[in-house]
Design a binder for these strands. Structure first.
Lengths: 237, 237
DNA sequence: AAATTCATTATTGGATCCAATAACGATTCA
DNA sequence: TGAATCGTTATTGGATCCAATAATGAATTT
């Protein structure tokens, strides 16, 4: 267990080899370290990562369940090839699921505690865009705000099945709610990210008005906005 | 490996111990053999099933990913308690996902091959109800027809993410498309099952007309029809 | 009586090894 | 030349065992 793996500790606590393995494999898959179809074998991967086969086997099973790798029968595993159509479909699924979450909230209304949480969340978004431009750190800040917004929406919906259905998407590159297909310097992304923030404001406004169709449609369109990014499809043709 | 496990062979081919284990555990969970919260430990389960810990560990990991069990940290696993609200939410998620599948088909239309496959599938349904009553074997026959219809709809939609998002539901009791909350003798279930079949006919008619809103709404309402069964909620209060 | 400490136990994670099986490539036959 | 067969290799599945750690209950202290 070398320094790189120690550096992967989270919350100041060292991760177990099994956790390291799955994090490493996810990153390698996301970075395109494996060509689609290229074999990922337990033994070779264990040797490369300096662990025994057990944590690699466990990790590959989990990644298979997440749809990031597919089993080649007795021949090991392979990174799943992801097409632009796959991304398109995953975003569409995200749209209807988050739309359902928004509709549920609009139908039954927000509790005062929920309303306060959404208000605090959106205030963070307002703060990010208040000065009319983005600094370097603001992209990470927006990332955190965006993730918090989507997680809160799903949690507040009161239907855990929505979050469970979204779990696959959360691991698929660019289909996750936090996928940010940035193509330019942060300062040039102001309009792009600000548009996403305005979508958030519009959806919560519709929820507060009890306008279920508008809330649902707003979230579905918000998800589809990700499809407009050119870089999204360069990698997956 | 006793006769019971040999009897679990599928397709005339003996299953591996790992496959037996996960099938056995799924059945025990579905049958309520474990009380919610009751510990399911690797060692005790392995002894009970006559295998080593390895296939049990693999199976428990998979069942955790499916949402049927939850990890108790270093204390093992427990069958996840499922409430009526959980079932309600899962059915709602199924409704929007299958509604999305129906909408996609209505928007882009059916190919002649797809239309033929749907026609053949629905003809099987027509045959089941043609004589105006149900025989004993007709419930299994309807089960197979129903499963084929839902699978074909998702497959024909051309969006694999819909099927992937539905995978969790497929393992949740009563949330699966093939959940049949039968409460009476087969002959008495004619109206119930026939209504489901007529829903299928209406959805395909809407798809053929290119009426995307009607197709989507029809599938969502078809999923919600499962909520009307009284026995659905007896078990999960 | 309540809180704290400590020893023990139960449990999972991982390492190692062997068995079983599928896949592959070379050889042989028609 | 193509098909079939066979031997070899690569790979995963599972068994066994040990290490690490969390949980539990008893004993001690306040």
């Amino acid at each position: 267990m070398d320094d790189e793996w120690n550096a992967q500790a989270q919350g100041g606590r060292r991760l177990k080899p099994g956790q390291h393995v799955i994090i490493s494999l996810r990153r390698m898959i996301a970075e395109g370290s494996f060509r689609p179809g290229e074999r990922i074998a337990e033994i070779a991967t264990a040797e490369a990562l300096g662990v025994s086969r057990m944590p690699v086997r466990t990790a590959l099973r989990a990644l298979e369940a997440e749809g990031l790798v597919e089993k080649l029968g007795a021949r090991g595993y392979a990174a799943r090839s992801i097409s632009a159509a796959d991304i398109h479909g995953a975003i569409e699924v995200r749209g209807v699921l988050e739309g359902l979450a928004a509709r549920r909230l609009a139908v039954r209304g927000l509790t005062p505690a929920e309303d306060a949480r959404f208000a605090a969340c959106l205030a963070e978004g307002e703060a990010i865009f208040a000065k009319g431009t983005l600094a370097q750190g603001d992209v990470d800040r927006f990332h955190d705000y965006n993730l918090a917004f989507h997680n809160l929406l799903v949690e507040a919906s009161g239907n855990p099945s929505i979050g469970q259905a979204l779990e696959r998407n959360d691991h698929l590159p660019f289909a996750s709610a936090v996928a940010l297909a940035l193509e330019n310097e942060p300062a040039d992304e102001f309009a792009h990210l600000h548009s996403a923030h305005r979508d958030h404001l519009a959806v919560i406004a519709a929820i507060r008005l009890g306008d279920a169709p508008a809330a649902e449609r707003g979230m579905a369109e918000h998800a589809r906005a990700a499809l407009g990014s050119e870089r999204l499809f360069q990698r997956f043709r």
